[in-house]
Design a protein around this nucleic acid. Structure first.
Lengths: 204, 204, 204, 204
DNA sequence: AATGAATGAGCGTTCATTCAT
DNA sequence: GATGAATGAACGCTCATTCAT
């Protein structure tokens, strides 16, 4: 669906994306009906199908926009940092903060992985982000500051740490994103056994 | 649902659990209908409701049994190992192997997290597993072999690494579980920067 | 279904009739499943279909036996009474007492009227009872003690009074059947305007 | 269900209420499926659930509207009549005529009494009607024209007569409502034994 | 651009009934 | 006589989508 939209139209569309994202996250994609979404915004059903050709397309848009925004944040945070390890650290910290601010979108990412037709939508954005991280890692390996291991593996290990800690520590335990980021960074850099002096006060 | 089942009945029930798990994983929980499940087994719809009081209950059973089994594997693997770090390592290796063998169940775990009513079902089993890992970590910290950080955080960081690497490396890239386990163990013990000599050949 | 039953068989059958009647009355005929009935008696489904060829047949049997029994009570009560008005009065009193003792069966009569296939089952028994009452009324008219009006109408008017008062006064308000019978008899004999000295203390 | 309806919408709703009432009466509430109702009107299933949130709700609406209408008729008929006995008579006559015109609704009232969840729906309307009749009766007792008996009992006795005669004489025998009303009034005023000169020609 | 109304395939579930053991 | 298991049509209901206005 690619309509020419007026200012007001763009506003409506944004409302739909935002409200639907929140409902999908709270209630699940399938259990949330189009009827519920439009009712929540107090508009008729026609509105929905004016802006999106299907519920599935809307979900795709939510994913696309969310990834885009996360990406923008990270690029901006890393921009001028010359040190590759520091860039990695900044990436983790930015992710963590963003996830803290958009936890409902994280839930949607998790769901998207569980159904074939949505997994594809996620893939593109993820690949870009991974490729980026891989670059930093390679640079770190080149500089002898990261051990020489498959950079993809290292990247995904870090992604796993970041996402999982975000979910458990921030969403469920309610910790502050910055503290969790400290812990994630420490773990990623040094694992279980690394030098203890880097551990943040909050987790000692 | 708690029926007295004959031998044949137990067999049927197992068939249903197994087949449904596979379909849920491939197709998604919601998109997989009860009709599809029973048709796949060539039985009538009534059979389903003879063994389970609802689709939701069946899903709960799948989760419960899966967690139980993973748990059993881990306990058995760790049983007599006195070294806490080695126990952690064995835990990771067992998980990875089990995930490789039951990747469809992993998808279901992922889905369960995204809907409130299922999240609760997961929780109980997860808490037990986490509590166990925490014990090993605490012992490691006590022995001065793990840096003194919130053991829960370390546990979840490792869980994140293990699960994410399983998904990406084993399921998507098709790597061998044992190699992925090597990488996960290396990352968990030493992070990005630790001593490189532990890295498995497959990822160098 | 007409099986030769052993002593034990007859007992089982009676149990089924009785329990089902009670459940049908409490819960409605349709909302009460065969499964519920057999579960309530702690037997398997086969038992039900051993004694009855269908749920519908069972319901018919309940109606038939109930009418038969009410009829027996009335015949016995009236047996040797020579005075037709007194016979009518005794009929009302017996009905009221029986209804008080078998209110659940009354509910089933009411339900039976609302569905074609069951209405027929009721009819036979009702016709017999009405014909009987009509006889007494005719006799009363012949003797100049009842005004000369269509005896069928008078009969049904009395039936209406008896049944409705039973339902409202006995079932809902919880009055004693004998008091309600007094009131019904008074109303039937003299209407709204008749001599007041016959009114029972309970209703003055 | 409380939708803002257009003219066309109100029309549809009325159709559904009317058609469903007729089917429920002919066939029984449970044996009549929603599918049958919408098919009978040649519309899709969704239409039903656009106007009613459940089959049960529809049934409630039918009951409510029917009681409301009967009530309206009676109020109008009695409006300016000063004589309480005459008001009672007019009430009976109006009921009888209305029942003759809406016999299918009468069947539904009868059914509603037999299931708990529907009994409650009936109660409210019935209570109002009874309270009204009780007022007239009390007035009649005060004027010494009705014997001094519990007015509720008298009211229900009359209700019993009216409803039962309607069912048997009008619905089953096919008599004219006005004649049946004559007989009902005569019985209610004077019982079996009162002055015979009030009896209508049709029943002599 | 938006509404209320309508569609109808499909859902999860029930249940009278049958049958092998 | 009795059981647990199985059947499958039918039920009440939902919901993504379409359409007339």
């Amino acid at each position: 669906m690619n309509r020419r939209l007026t200012q007001r139209g763009r506003e409506r569309r944004r409302q739909l994306v935002e409200y639907a994202a929140r409902r999908f996250a709270e209630n699940g994609y399938h259990p949330t009906s189009v009827a519920e979404i439009v009712a929540g915004l107090g508009v008729g059903k026609g509105v929905f199908y004016w802006y999106f050709s299907s519920k599935e397309e809307l979900f795709g848009e939510i994913l696309r926009e969310a990834q885009q925004e996360l990406r923008r944040c990270q690029e901006q945070a890393i921009a001028d940092e010359p040190d590759p390890l520091r860039r990695i650290e900044l990436g983790i910290r930015t992710s963590m903060r963003w996830l803290g601010d958009h936890r409902h979108l994280f839930t949607l990412f998790q769901f998207a992985v569980t159904e074939d037709r949505f997994r594809g939508m996620l893939r593109r954005g993820e690949d870009v982000a991974v490729a980026d991280a891989v670059r930093h890692i390679k640079e770190g390996i080149g500089a002898g500051r990261i051990r020489d291991t498959d950079p993809m593996v290292l990247t995904h290990a870090m992604l796993g740490v970041t996402n999982h800690l975000a979910r458990v520590m921030i969403f469920e335990r309610g910790d502050a994103p910055d503290d969790v980021a400290d812990a994630a960074v420490a773990f990623c850099l040094d694992g279980l056994c690394g030098p203890p002096e880097k551990v943040p006060a909050a987790y000692r």
